[in-house]
Design a protein around this nucleic acid. Sequence first.
DNA 1: TTATAGATTGCCT
DNA 2: GGCAATCTATAAT
Length: 229
Amino acid sequence: MPKAKRKATENPAPNQPPHRFPSSRTRPLPPDFYDRDPRRVARDLLGKLLVRREGKRLLAGRIVEVEAYLGHDDPAAHAAAGRTARNFVLWGPPGRAYIYFIYGNHYCLNVSCLPDGVAGCVLVRALEPVLGIGQMTKARGLDESTLDRTTGLRLLTSGPGRLAQAMGITRARDNGKNLTSPKSDLWIADDGALPPRVKRTVRIGITKAAEHPLRYVIAGNPFVSGRKA
DNA sequence: TTATAGATTGCCT
DNA sequence: GGCAATCTATAAT
């Protein structure tokens, strides 16, 4: 029984519900998914769901913007400085959360790539909120009445610091966490959504190696970070 | 021990 | 569009 085929260039509409409603049984992507070049992982993470279990509640957002960071030959990557107490997760097994604290205020979520012993990761830069918008609003310290429109919802998870705060992600809680384990309270899942149309650009907010086009976004998605979506 | 830059955000003009 | 906030990791003294 062949599945109906649809164009891969089609984008999910903003606020589209998950193809299969996420639940605590929505399976995490396996380690093999992350055991590849970060550029390939980055592209393939677009359209997947980042899921957080908060007690009985579930938070979820669709990944709409990511950046790849390579190893020692990428000056913009934290791995370029060599292994330290801060970045050791980058050299660990694939599919682990690397959380760092930046500018005195913000946590950022990365996922380690490539096999144990080889550095590389993908930075998750923006989500489209899917589940738990009320909880995300509270975590961000915002008022629901100001989030009626898409422009307001962007304040929840459009930007690496924002999405970490909305999903309750901190270094103490999540650094080194195995995102591929069914027991984890933080993971990434494929809910069966159609592969999105992907646009590649230069990375944002960095000064070193800024010319490399290693940022991947879902074309036209309004939840991509930045002043101009 | 001190200095400084940083994979950001939000408020100001 | 400009810039302060806020703190950690790492470099420089």
